[in-house]
Design a binder for these strands. Structure first.
Length: 356
DNA sequence: CAACCGTGGGG
DNA sequence: TCCCCAAGGTT
């Protein structure tokens, strides 16, 4: 007798989850109630970010900001610095705004409904469902990329993303376990992350291998259907690593909105596809004996690649920082909220300055 | 609603 | 090296 297609059941998923659930720093142990603050912070950090990248940030963040009140009371520079390197910095700005809203308008307690959470900054359709289900066991779902992959395979949904989203949500809601919504949400994500992976899914270990339409057709890796997205044109620019005689380095804070908003940078030019490197020194923040590094710093953002040519120079002790800039003592550089692209530029520039 | 918004790792 | 993509939200 061949295994005939059955209907997927939440019970099969939850039974699998009870045996294979991952242990994560923000996840409650079986039978324990999850801490909404930790769940919320983890969900924001995990947006478009891998668990491996998040773990060390999460641990440091919890030490530095142990409660939503502590986070709300912290200066924004401190929050941005704690986030530096994680990417998508609007998440950090919204996180801070959200903490203030919870502390000031909700008495330090997170709303315990999907709708209430959804109204807070940085909390959208996914995160509101995730926190409501995981931290408050509300009967709702959390549809992320994992879930979209699992569900489009399970039902062989041919619609391209993101137009398939409403149908996917409908299917997940139909499967939802009303007894264990929090575990159901986490089980679905664990399944997507460990079994129903983007490439080479381990269908033989899947609790839903029998009802999975995509596996039956041998087409599991072709879901979800997605249109190919095009990458932007490479942009070019100059960055200036300026060291004062006492070792202090010239930096400035970027505007609060937009790319790398609110983060710290070394001064530089605009980034354009047609940037003329020959004229780069007109973008220098101060006059110095600039040395141009031959190897540009390469960095890839979500929507465009960047080639940053670094100039390094020393300036006298009496040099004043231009308007909007400041000299940071060398030993405090590590406390600045540098995104990675500027860490790369800084490292390259400082190395050049060490040479005779 | 499509563009914008980082970064690191895996295949 | 290159490409894809990971627990998305905002505008």
């Amino acid at each position: 007798m061949h295994a005939s297609a059955t209907q997927p059941r939440a019970a099969d998923l939850l039974a699998w989850y009870d045996r294979h659930r991952r242990v994560l720093p923000w996840r409650a142990l079986p039978g324990e109630q999850a801490d909404p603050y930790r769940v919320w912070v983890s969900e924001i950090m995990l947006q478009q970010t891998t668990i491996a990248a998040v773990k060390p940030y999460f641990e440091r963040f919890m030490v530095r900001f142990p409660s939503v009140e502590a986070l709300a009371a912290a200066p924004s520079e401190s929050v941005m610095q704690a986030w530096a390197g994680l990417g998508y910095y609007s998440r950090a700005r919204n996180l801070h705004a959200c903490a203030k809203a919870v502390a000031d308008q909700h008495g330090g307690r997170f709303p315990d409904t999907e709708e209430g959470l959804r109204a807070l900054p940085g909390i959208g359709a996914y995160t509101s469902g995730a926190v409501a289900a995981i931290a408050f066991d509300r009967p709702t779902v959390a549809v992320d990329g994992n879930v979209e992959r699992v569900i489009t395979r399970l039902f062989a949904i041919e619609d391209e993303m993101p137009s398939a989203k409403p149908l996917i949500r409908e299917r997940v809601l139909a499967l939802l376990s009303l007894e264990r919504p929090g575990d159901f949400a986490q089980a679905l994500m664990d399944l997507g992350a460990t079994i129903c992976t983007p490439r080479s899914p381990a269908c033989g270990l899947c609790p839903w291998r029998e009802p999975c339409r995509a596996r039956i057709e041998g087409m599991q890796e072709s879901f979800p259907r997605k249109a190919v997205k095009k990458t932007g044109k490479t942009r070019y620019g100059a960055a200036f690593v300026t060291m004062r005689e006492d070792g202090a380095v010239l930096v400035r804070t970027r505007p609060a909105r937009g790319l790398l908003g609110g983060m710290v940078e070394v001064p530089g030019s605009d980034w354009r596809a047609d940037y003329e490197l020959d004229d780069a020194l007109r973008d220098a923040p101060v006059s110095a004996g600039w040395r141009r590094l031959m190897l540009p710093v390469r960095h890839v953002f979500t929507h465009f690649p960047l080639e940053l040519t670094v100039f390094a120079g020393r300036v006298p002790l009496e040099t004043e920082a231009p308007e909007g800039m400041r000299f940071t003592p060398f030993h405090r550089l590590k406390e600045e909220a540098f995104p990675n692209v500027f860490l790369k530029a800084l490292e390259a520039g400082l190395e050049e300055l060490q040479r005779p």
